[in-house]
Amino acid sequence: MNTVDLLTDAFGRVRENVHDVVEGLTPEQLGARVDDANSIVWLIWHLTRVQDDHISEVAGAEQIWTARGWSDRFGLPLPVTSTGYGHDSEHVAAVRVDSADLLTGYYDEVHERTIDYVRGLTEADLDRVVDHAWNPPVTLGVRLVSVIDDDTQHVGQAAFVRGVILGRAGA
């Protein structure tokens, strides 16, 4: 297995988990919050926005969010540039959807771009510095691992919330 295969597999696992977490949930369940924590819809939207933002930046492309009209389809009362960083409870509550299909549709387009981008990389590309604001500067490889790490943490949180919500419904 080479690095591209490894990254492709990791991002593929995130996709599977995103679909598993939202499958069969109603809009109310997606938006439910446990003790004012982040909702499933917010967690999946946020991880997708961050992936879209970071991959678009390193690929030199416009974000899927705006380029493909997802910001309009979601119609959130947030700035179009919002990715969820710094959101407070009111911002989290503002992220709502009418169906899980909206979430997975957006995620799938971002995933597709991510995989297309990753498949075009060489080992040498991963050492390219993409962010000089950090010490040490962030390489493309580190940025991609960071996105995967962020995605897995958030989809895991969403899976936990799903378990709590469905557990409550069965009680």
Rank of each mutant, 00 (worst) to 15 (best):
D20R: 15
G69N: 05
D150R: 10
S146T: 14
L144K: 08
V80Q: 03
I148H: 14
H19T: 05
D116N: 06
T81S: 11
V95E: 05
V22Y: 04
Y106S: 07
G84V: 09
Y106H: 10
T152C: 03
R128F: 03
Y106P: 09
R15V: 04
R49M: 12
G156H: 09
V147Y: 10
V34E: 07
L144A: 06
Y85F: 14
P77G: 01
I64L: 10
G86I: 15
T3V: 13
L76F: 15
W65V: 08
L166C: 00
G170T: 07
A10N: 11
F74Q: 01
I148T: 07
R33E: 06
T83D: 09
R68F: 03
L7N: 02
E23R: 14
T48V: 10
G170R: 15
P136N: 06
A159Y: 07
G12K: 00
I55T: 00
E28F: 01
A169I: 15
G84W: 13
S146K: 13
L78G: 04
L166P: 00
L76G: 01
R143K: 15
D108M: 06
V118F: 00
V118I: 15
H111Y: 14
V18W: 02
V147A: 09
D9I: 03
Y107L: 14
D20K: 14
T81P: 00
A133F: 00
S39G: 08
T8D: 14
D5G: 11
E23M: 05
R128W: 02
V142R: 14
G69W: 08
P27V: 04
V34G: 03
L78N: 04
Q29L: 11
L126R: 11
T81K: 05
A59E: 01
A93R: 15
W45E: 06
P77Y: 06
V147L: 12
D101Q: 11
A32H: 06
L25V: 05
E23N: 13
H154R: 04
V147F: 12
L103E: 08
H19G: 04
F11L: 12
R96C: 02
S99Y: 03
Y106C: 08
V130R: 02
H111A: 12
V41L: 00
G12F: 03
G156N: 08
S89K: 11
V97P: 00
W45N: 07
Y85I: 11
L103S: 10
T122Y: 01
G167V: 07
E112L: 08
D88V: 13
T66A: 10
V58H: 04
E112T: 15
D108N: 14
D72I: 04
D5K: 09
D151L: 12
V118M: 04
A93G: 02
R143F: 05
A158G: 09
V92S: 02
T81R: 09
L166Y: 03
T83K: 10
H87Q: 11
S39T: 09
V80W: 05
P79L: 06
L126V: 06
T114S: 13
D151N: 15
L140W: 02
G141R: 12
S99R: 02
D72V: 10
V95C: 08
